[in-house]
């Protein structure tokens, strides 16, 4: 199994954390992991992305040209990366935020009303967890329990009371794909 994914959105939407969380969960299952962030001006509010690769075998390059999955949380991400998704690959996008939707016919496209759902859960900050739930439903590459363990590792202890909210968001994201 090798999953080559890109998570892309505005700075502050938590796209880097999505990839990182997947990476920590991958390590828990002793997978090979690379997580390559765009750093620099993006981190100060522009568009941000990270390429995350999870694999059973060694990973030659953390930089890749095409992706198995594009997770897009804003319009520029769809505009920029739709063409870079491999044939038969996936685009998962936040349908609340994205107006010009992806149109390719040779890939699987999942519209997830992430931001709208986050508002319904009364915390816009859990958008990334909703979308990560959708990601894992589409790509069941890691166990749910590894994600929960990774959450404990990534979140500083003073935020551990927020873990149930994050889990709820994640589960909701999974359900949004099932429907």
């Amino acid at each position: 199994m090798t999953q080559e994914a890109i998570f892309s959105g505005f700075g502050g939407q938590g796209v880097l954390t999505m990839g990182m969380l997947l990476g920590y969960a991958g390590i828990i299952e002793d997978k090979e992991v690379t997580w390559m962030p765009s750093y620099g001006p993006e981190m100060r509010g522009g568009t941000a992305n990270c390429i995350t690769i999870i694999s059973d075998t060694s990973i030659s390059s953390p930089i890749i040209s095409t992706f198995d999955t594009l997770m897009a949380l804003n319009q520029p991400s769809v505009d920029k990366f739709e063409e870079k998704v491999k044939k038969g690959g996936n685009i998962i996008y936040d349908s609340t935020n994205i107006i010009n939707v992806p149109t390719r016919k040779d890939i699987n496209i999942y519209a997830v009303p992430g931001s709208e759902t986050a508002v319904r859960l009364k915390n816009s900050k859990v958008l990334n967890m909703i979308m990560l739930g959708s990601f894992l439903k589409v790509n069941p590459i890691l166990k749910l329990e590894s994600i929960w363990k990774a959450l404990e590792q990534v979140l500083p202890e003073r935020y551990h009371h927020l873990i149930p909210l994050n889990q709820e968001a994640f589960n909701t994201g999974m359900e949004l794909i099932a429907k």
Partner: peptide, 10 residues
Amino acid sequence: DGAIGQMMEK
């Protein structure tokens, strides 16, 4: 380089 400094791996 900056990319290896910033990236995460096992």
